[in-house]
Every structure is written in C-alpha cells, then in structure tokens.
Simulated assay, not measured.
Amino acid sequence: MRTIALETYAKVNLALDILGRREDGYHDMYMVMQTISLGDTVTVTETAEGFALLVEGETLPRDSKSMEQQATETFFRALGRPVPGLEVRLEKRVPAYAGLGGGSADVAAVLRCLRNLYCPEMSRLELETIGARVGSDVAFCLRGGTCLAQGRGERLTDLSPLPECAFVLCKPSFGLPTPALFARVDNQDLGPRPDVDGMAAALERGDLSAVAARLGNVFEAVLAGEEAEAVAAIKRTLLRRGAMGAAMSGSGPTVFGIFPNRAAARGVYGDLIARYPQTYLVSPVKKFRELE
C-alpha cells in the first residue's frame, strides 16, 4: 500500500470585489489572491477498500460526503476508472470559517496526491479543471503564487509575484461561513470598490507600498455589530503598529496586515497573539512548480 503526504498552503485576498450575482446562483468575482506559508498536512494512503477521512487537530462539521471525497470521485471519474480504497488524513493548522481557504487548500492537496500516485502525466490545467468542479478556490490552491481570479474564482491569470514581505494574520474568536456572507451581499451598497487593476499594475512594478495601499475587500461592507467592531479593532491595531496596509481576507473574519519584513511584524504579532490565539506570522509563497 502506497502513502504520500503533502503540505498545503492557505491564501489571503489582497483585493476582493464582487461584480454581481450570476444566473447559476454564484457571484462573479474580481480578486487578487496570494498564497501564504500557513497550511495543513494532507496524507493519502491506499487501503483495501472504501474511503475514509480522518481529521486531526480540529473537529470540523462535515456533510455525509466531504469535499475531499467529492474531489476524489471527480478525479477518478475524469480518469474513467473506479475509486480505489483510500484513507485521507488531515493535520489541521489553518482555522476553519476564517476566509483563508483552508478547506480548498486541503482538497487541492488531495488532488495533487492523487495525481502523483495515479496519473503523474496529468497537466496542471487538467487538474485545475477538476478542482474547479469541486470548489471555487481549489484551482487557485493548486496553482499558488499571486493571481488575478475571475468568474467564481476559477479563471486565473498569473500576476507578478508579490515582493518579499511578511503578513500578520489575526482571526477573532468567531467564524463567518462563506454562504452567509454572500447572502448579505445581494442588493447591498458595497461602498468603494478595491482598485484591482491598480494592484495588478503595482505588482508588475514590484511596488509593495502601492500594493498595500490598495488592499480592499467588499465583504467588510456587510459586516454588522460585533463582527464589524472586531475586524475594525484588529485593523486599527495592525496599522497603528506599522502595517503598510490591512484588510479582511475572503469572507472573513481573519484580518491581515502587510509588513516590509518579519522583524517589523514581530511586535504586533506578539501583542495580538496574547489576545487572539489564532494569530500567525507568515510569508508569501510563490507559484508552485510541480505541475509545470
């Protein structure tokens, strides 16, 4: 029986705009996404029969058929062969309901493991197409790096890499399930929109200050009550302690700040982790090359 283990990588949304609701019920997105060095470990092991998912480090609510199982079935359907016996083990470090794409990153890692085990000649584009059938962020989590994401998030364009920097991530004690945030968006005034095109141009110039100045997320406009207060308080702390810019990632509630280097970020990281246990000091990760 063969076993393969891979590290996953979460993401932050440097800019997130929602263009409108589509006829299929999804929303058209316009985003700049960035891979970060916070992730889980995914191990796939061949077994005699069946599919089993084991989650370590965190208890997650799961439907009768997990995204990992859906991804596995979609992968083997594309190969035209039955699903073999498999056990998938997740060692969780990325918090759930945080806006960091941890679930999508785990699904992407399962697909990478299956490709390596069963179809190493499969191209990146083929694997991304399979991933997009399972979840909107999975294609990006397979590619990594810095990307413009459109459509549901599955239409990707590589952008110039984010210059070297550091992120402090801070998640309040509550979670915000993505469907609940999308339900608030329709027919709402989302206020000023992030300058996605300006951010892409700043990345092309390698101008970290201009990137940080253009951080933005329209989901922040639909936060209410204690949610809005907690996100705003963390942003104020990050900016007061030297962040070049700060914003909420994805559907939240994790807030991130950009710093020129890890040394500049350590002070506020220490302050925030004393109050918010799910605080992380991480770095940007460049595009994955294994699927080229």
Rank of each mutant, 00 (worst) to 15 (best):
R2A: 15
T8D: 06
A10R: 01
N13C: 06
A15W: 00
D17Y: 02
G20L: 08
G20N: 10
G20F: 04
R22F: 05
M29K: 06
V32K: 03
V32F: 02
M33G: 05
T35V: 01
I36F: 00
S37D: 11
G39Q: 04
V42I: 15
V44N: 03
A48M: 12
A48K: 12
G50C: 09
G50A: 09
V55K: 01
G57R: 11
T59S: 14
L60N: 01
P61C: 09
S64P: 09
M67I: 11
M67F: 15
A71W: 00
A71Q: 03
T72F: 06
E73P: 05
E73T: 04
T74R: 14
P82D: 08
P82T: 09
V83L: 11
P84Y: 06
L86S: 04
V88W: 04
R89Q: 13
L90F: 12
K92F: 09
R93L: 10
R93F: 03
V94W: 00
A96I: 08
A98R: 05
G99D: 02
L100E: 01
G102R: 00
V107R: 01
L111N: 05
L111W: 00
C113S: 11
L114R: 00
E121V: 06
M122V: 08
M122H: 10
R124C: 12
L125T: 13
E126Y: 13
T129H: 13
I130H: 03
G131C: 10
A132M: 11
R133W: 10
V134W: 04
D137E: 11
V138I: 15
A139S: 14
R143N: 12
R143F: 07
G144T: 06
G145S: 10
E154K: 08
L156A: 10
L156V: 06
D158N: 13
D158W: 13
L159G: 05
S160H: 13
E164M: 09
A166P: 01
A166D: 01
F167C: 00
F167Q: 01
F167R: 00
V168R: 02
L169N: 02
K171H: 06
P172D: 04
S173L: 13
G175M: 07
T178N: 09
T178F: 05
T178R: 12
D186Y: 11
D197C: 12
M199K: 05
M199N: 06
A200C: 15
A201C: 12
A201I: 07
A201W: 07
L203S: 04
E204H: 10
D207V: 09
D207G: 11
G216A: 09
N217Q: 07
N217D: 06
N217C: 07
V222A: 02
L223Y: 09
L223C: 13
L223S: 07
E226Y: 04
E226P: 12
V231G: 04
A232D: 13
I234D: 03
K235N: 05
K235R: 15
T237S: 14
T237W: 12
L239T: 08
G242A: 07
M244T: 00
G245M: 04
S251V: 05
G252Q: 02
P253L: 05
V255C: 09
F256M: 02
F256S: 00
F256Y: 14
F259W: 09
P260H: 11
N261D: 14
R266T: 13
V268L: 06
I273Q: 15
R275D: 15
T279W: 02
Y280H: 15
Y280P: 00
P284G: 05
V285Q: 09
V285A: 06
K287R: 15
K287A: 14
F288E: 14
R289S: 14
E292K: 12
